[in-house]
Write a protein that binds this DNA or RNA. Sequence first.
DNA 1: TGGCTCTGCGCC
DNA 2: AAAGGGCGCAGAGCCA
Length: 746
Amino acid sequence: MKIHLQLTSADRSFIPSLKPLLQGHNVGLNDAPIGTITEVEMRATARGAKHIATTNPTLLYKLLRAEYARKKPSLDDYAGSIIERNGYEYLILNPLDHLVTTPTGNFLYKRYFSKFTDQQKWFPVPNFTWEIATPASLGSLYTKFSSASFIAVDIETIKEQLAITCSGYCGVWFDSSNNTIKFHAIVIPCTDEFMLAWIGKFNQLPAPKIMQNGKYDNAYFLRWGIPPVNWTWDTLNLFHCWYSELPKRLDFIASFILRKWEFWKDEADVPIHSEQYYRYNAKDAFTTAIAFLGLMQEMPSWARQNYQQEFPLVFPCLQAELTGLKRNESNFQKLKDQIEEAIASELQLLRSSLGEPNFNPNSPKQVVQLWKVLGSSDISSSDTPARDIVKNRHPINRFVVDRIENIRKNRKLLSSYLKDGLTLHGRILYQLNPSGTDTGRLASAESHYWCGLQIQNIPRDRTDIVYKGIFAADKEFYIGEGDYDQAESRGTAYLSGDTSLIETVNSDKDFHALNASSFFGIPYEKIVDALGDVLDKTLRDLSKRVNHGANYNMAEQVLLNTMGIENVLRARSMLRLPKNWTLLEVCRYLLAVFDKTYPIVRGPWYDKIKVDVITTHMLVGPTGWTRYCFGNPVRNKRDMNRYAAHPPQSLNAMTLNQAWLKVFYEVALPNPKDFKLCAQIHDSILFQYRVGRDDLIRSVHQCMLFDTAVVDTFGTSRILRVPVSMKAEGKTWADVKKVDWLKIAA
DNA sequence: TGGCTCTGCGCC
DNA sequence: AAAGGGCGCAGAGCCA
C-alpha cells in the first residue's frame, strides 16, 4: 500500500523518531504548507496513494469545514479518526513531537498507522441505524429489545432540575444461526411522565447493560426512580483496566478500538430535543456498544482480571456519592465570615504598605513584578519555593510575603471550599471514581449533580481554622473514620524486601522517631519518651520529610523546596554538618543517609522495577492488579519516579478498595438504617453509624484488617497486615475521637 | 463573552 | 538542564 504522509514544518525535526515506524511500508513524506485539499490529493496521486495520513491542522480544518463551520477542530480530538473524501482516506494524527514528548506517542502512532497498513485486524464497524421511539412504536421496540444479548445505555441531561432529556439504547443481537451480530439504536425522549416510565421499563430489561461512565447515568436514573438492572459492563472501567495511562473518553476509546471512526463530539452542540440531538444520543449508545465488543475481543486476560477487581467498586462508590454529608450551616457561615474578614484586613494592610491600591496577591505576574521592586528580579515564579527564597532575603520581604501567603491561603479556602453551590438539599455531594488514577486509587471530583466538591482534598484542621466542622453527622448518627497506619511505608518495606525497613515499620515504637534515630545516630529515648510523647519534634519532623522525599525519589533541589530554607538550615546546625555546606549539599546528605539506612529501597528494588518495566511493560502488584507502563524508567527520570511510586501506592489502594467493598457488603447493606458509607480518602474510610451502634465501628475495623501476601525483590513472600486506627463519635468530621477500646476487647 | 492554557495549591 | 508520586479545581491571562 502506498501512503502519503502530509506533515507540517514543525514536524521536521522529529522525522528520525518516525522512521522506525514506517519501515517496510511505502510512505512518502511531505511537509509543504497546505493550499487546498485538491493540492494535497494531487501530491498523493502523484505517487499513487489513496491513503493520506496527516498531522496538519489546516488540512483537518479544510476537511471538516463544510460540516462544522463553528469552531476550529482540535487535532487531538480527531487523532486516530479516519475521514473519507473523494475516494481518499485521511488518517488524522497528532503532531510528530508526541513521539518524543509523550510516553504513549509511539504506541499510538503505531496503532493508528496500522489502520492503513493492517486493516483486516480491526474490529469491523457495522452500519449505524437508529430511530426515535414514539408512543406508537415503544411497544414493539420493547418486544424487540427483550431478546437483545446486550443493551448499551446512554442518557443526555440538563442542569435545570437535573433532568434527563432523553435516553438512548443500542441493542446487540447475536444470531448464532448465521453467525451475525445485529445492532439497532433507539432514543426515548424524556418529555413527560409517560416517557419517563417507558425509560424505566427499558432499564428493567434483563440484558446486561453496557455504559460509559455509568455512574453518571445511574445517578440520574436513581434520582428519577428508574434504576436499571444488570449493569455489568462499563467501557470506561474496561479501558482503564487495560491502559490506565491513556485517556478514557468515549471518543478516544472509539478511535482506539475502531478503524473507521470519525470523532463526533463536535455534533453535540445542537438544540435540545432536536433530531440531531437525539441522533447524537443514539450514536453515543451505538459507539458504547461497539467499543465494548471491540474491547472484549482485544483485551488480554490480565486486563480482564483488573476489571473483575475494579468494576464492583462502582456500586459502593455510587452509593457513597449519593449519600454525601450534611452541612452544618452555622459552622459554615461562621467560618466564611471569619475568612472573608481576615482577607479584607490583610489585603488592606498589604495594599497600603505597598502603595498599590489594586495589587492582587493571587496574580503570579504582579507578584513577580513585586519581586523586582524588592530587588529579587532573579525570581520568576510566585509559588511556594520562590516565596521561600524571597522571604529569607530580608525582613521586609518576609512581612510582604507573609501577607501574600495569608491572603492566598484564605482565598483558596473561600473559592474552593466555602463557595456557593456546595449543597443539594443541605448535603455536600461528590464523586468517587474507581477509574480515575493510574495506580488504582479512587479519584474524587464534584458531584454528577453539578454541586459539591472534591472530597479527598479537604483542608486539614489548623489551629486557627477548623474546616472539617462544616461536615455534620446526620440526626442520631455519629461520624467515624478508619485509617491505615503508615500504609505506604509498610508497602515499600514489604515490596522492596529491605529488612531494616521491615523491622522499622513493624516495631511498636514510633516510625519517624526510629528513622530519626537511625538516620542521625541519636538515641531513640531522646526523641520519644517511654510514654510515647515526642521530645524532639524538630528532629522527628526532619526524618519524616527525608523519608517522604526518598520514597518519591526526590532530587536534592526538590527536597530543599519541600523542606524550606529554614528547615534545611536548622538541620545543618542541629546535625552539626560543616557550616560551609550549601543547602543543596545538606539535602544531598540527608537523602544519602536514607540510602545508607535502607539500601535495598533505592538500590535493588528500583533496579527490579526498571527491569520489569523495560522487559514486560508491566507492573504486577500483590493482588494481581497490573499496570501497563508506556514510559521508560531507564532513560527518563520522570518515568522512573512514576513507576517507583506506583507499587506502594497501588498496593495501598488495592487494600483499601478491598476493605471498601467488604464494608459495603458486610456492614452497609445489612444495616441500611444504621450505617452510611461516606467516602474513601486514600488511606481511610469515612462513614456514619447510628448512635448506640458502636459494634459497627468494630465491624468496619474488622473489614479493614486483613492479610496480603507480598513478594519482595528477591522472591521472598511475607504476610503484610496494615494496622487500622479507628476514630468515631464525631458530631462533625472535625471532632471524631480516637477509639481506644478496640484492641482491649479484641 | 466563552474557551483555552498556565500557574498555583488543597489532600494522601 | 533538571527532573517528587497520585489527583481536581480556581483564578489569571490570553485569544478569538
